[in-house]
Design a protein around this nucleic acid. Structure first.
Lengths: 201, 201
DNA sequence: TTTTGTTTTAATCATTTGTTTAATTTTTGA
DNA sequence: TCAAAAATTAAACAAATGATTAAAACAAAA
């Protein structure tokens, strides 16, 4: 009863990594089995099918990724500027450990976008969250132009996520890997500043 | 001699679309054949193998995508600000017609990043192009902070490309498809403004 | 028309791949 | 300790998949 759950989890972690790196169709069940150090048949014993294993992993991934944004947006304590810093640092820390996550998410957004928000209604979050309220306050105080919140969040996520999506291109543009990594580090400080400036008139 | 080249091109276009939508491994040769209205064997007659067909398509795609940026960067006529506008509008026009292009590129960057620049040396473009020169002039004139050019280009490309990569998520955040499309339109005007403001102190 | 080279087709091959089965080993609880 | 349950394995199956073959249809040149 204990041993099983352990290997089940091991398979899931291995599969998650492989799916992230190569995508659903490119990963073969035998590859997952070998990489997890299990017999091929065990995969179906625990997960019924490759498809089902993938669905489980995707549901987890989507929810966790979005939760990171939503939890901060719903924080009553922190102010608007602090939330931007929290979102930036939160995601950049995550991406340091899972650099393939963004591309993985984006690739499967088409079929799994609904799972992003789990139980929550997207529009509720984007109109009634503390972050949404604070955003409107900024607009009312004329510190931000009157544009939809999505536009703002889109810009923030763009700047955070894109370098990890385009890293092979950017590291070539940067000249070498070292300069690219330096650039990534720099962004953690700069993104909140850039975002703030962007809307300054 | 004429008929052949025509079907060859038809296969290539169909395959390109499928590869963009589903990725290499998920597209089956029979699917390409059926969608192109040809017999399965013709695919190997013209392209030797699925792999080879894909390589051809990727090489084309990478070069064309990057060329769009590099050509503008090497323009002697236009000034710095105009180049930013040209890059933004150039790419957004392209993406309107090929919305899956960014994800397709990013997914295959790992294996095909070298083909991005074709003959050119990346560092040459990023240090000796007119755009690079003009960027340094802006820095010298204190109109821009002293940061590497890649950082700047990364931000510009982020804002242009990300909405097309994350569209299923963003359209949900926006509330409905209509509002999302409105947002996309708005960005064409706003991105150059945002970019300019970003670096204002 | 005949001939020659090109294009297209149906059928087939050899692997790969997801899944299942049936037997074996290991673990657990009484 | 020992039987029942859980975990693991080797072997095999059926469908799919990329590729090839040999023959047919077609087009162009002589």
């Amino acid at each position: 009863m204990k041993k099983g759950e352990l290997t089940e989890e091991r398979i899931k972690q291995t599969a998650k990594l492989l799916f992230q790196q190569k995508g659903y169709a490119a990963v073969k069940t035998r590859e997952i089995a070998e990489a997890s150090g299990i017999n091929l048949a065990l995969l179906n014993y625990y997960f019924r099918s490759k498809e089902n294993l993938f669905q489980q992993i995707m549901a987890d991934t989507m929810r966790t990724f979005m939760q990171r944004l939503l939890l901060i947006m719903m924080q009553p304590e922190s102010d608007f500027r602090q939330k931007i810093i929290d979102i930036t640092e939160g995601y950049l820390d995550l991406l340091e450990q899972e650099p393939n996550l963004p591309l993985f998410i984006m690739n499967n957004l088409g079929t799994h976008a609904d799972e992003l928000f789990g139980e929550m209604q997207p529009d509720k979050v984007f109109t009634r969250s503390f972050f949404a309220q604070q955003y409107r306050e900024e607009i009312n105080a004329k510190r931000l132009p009157d544009q939809p919140l999505v536009q703002f969040v889109c810009n923030l996520l763009s700047l955070i996520v894109f370098p990890y999506i385009a890293s092979p291109m950017l590291s070539r543009m940067a000249g070498d890997e070292e300069r690219f990594l330096k650039m990534l580090k720099e962004r953690k400080k700069m993104i909140p500043v850039w975002i703030e400036n962007m809307y300054q008139k």
